[in-house]
C-alpha cells in the first residue's frame, strides 16, 4: 500500500507543480504588459504562447507591423531571468536576444517598417533545465 501511494505521489507531483507553474507564470507575464500600476497600455495580441521546454527551443513566426511598438514578455517562474528569447529577421539574422541583457523578462521593439520575424524561446540552461515557459505579445500605435 505504501508503495502504491509513493508511486502516486511521484506521478502526480510534476502534474501539480506544472499546472501551478503555468497559471502563475501567465499572471507574471500579464503584469509586464500592463505595468505594475496598470499604467502601461499595451494591447494584447489576444494569444497566450505556452511551451513546456525540456532542453529544447520553441519557435514561431509572426509579423511586426510598421508604425507600432511591440512588447515581448516572457517568463518561466518567479525568478524572471529563466527565459531567453531571440528575434530573427526573414533571413534568420538575429535582430535581438535578451541573453545580451541579463535575460530581461520584457523588451520593447519600435518598428519603423513591417517585418516578418521568427521568435525563438528557450530556457537558460544554467538556471533552469525544464519547465513551463510563457510568452505574451502586446502592441501600441
Amino acid at each position: 500500500m505504501k508503495t502504491f501511494v509513493r508511486i502516486l505521489l511521484v506521478t502526480l507531483l510534476p502534474f501539480a507543480a506544472s499546472s501551478q507553474d503555468c497559471e502563475s507564470i501567465v499572471r507574471t507575464c500579464e503584469s509586464y504588459l500592463t505595468g505594475k500600476s496598470g499604467s502601461v497600455k499595451f494591447v494584447s495580441d489576444g494569444q497566450v504562447y505556452t511551451a513546456f521546454l525540456d532542453r529544447e527551443k520553441a519557435e514561431f513566426k509572426t509579423t511586426f507591423f510598421g508604425g507600432s511598438t511591440y512588447r515581448i514578455a516572457a517568463s518561466a517562474g518567479t525568478d524572471d531571468e529563466y527565459v531567453i528569447f531571440t528575434v530573427k529577421d526573414p533571413n534568420g539574422k538575429i535582430l535581438f536576444t535578451n541573453s545580451k541583457y541579463k535575460n530581461a523578462p520584457y523588451w520593447d521593439f519600435k518598428v519603423q517598417h513591417t517585418i516578418p520575424v521568427t521568435i525563438e524561446t528557450e530556457l537558460d540552461l544554467d538556471k533552469k533545465v525544464t519547465g513551463c515557459a510563457v510568452m505574451l505579445i502586446g502592441f501600441k500605435q
Partner: peptide
Amino acid sequence: DPAASLNTNFDGKIFSIPSPVQTAML
C-alpha cells in the same frame, strides 16, 4: 484539469496571428 494543462504544454507547435485590431487602428 492538471492533465489537460500538461498535455497542452507538451503540444509542440506554436502559432501566432497578429491582432486584427491593428488593421482597424491603421
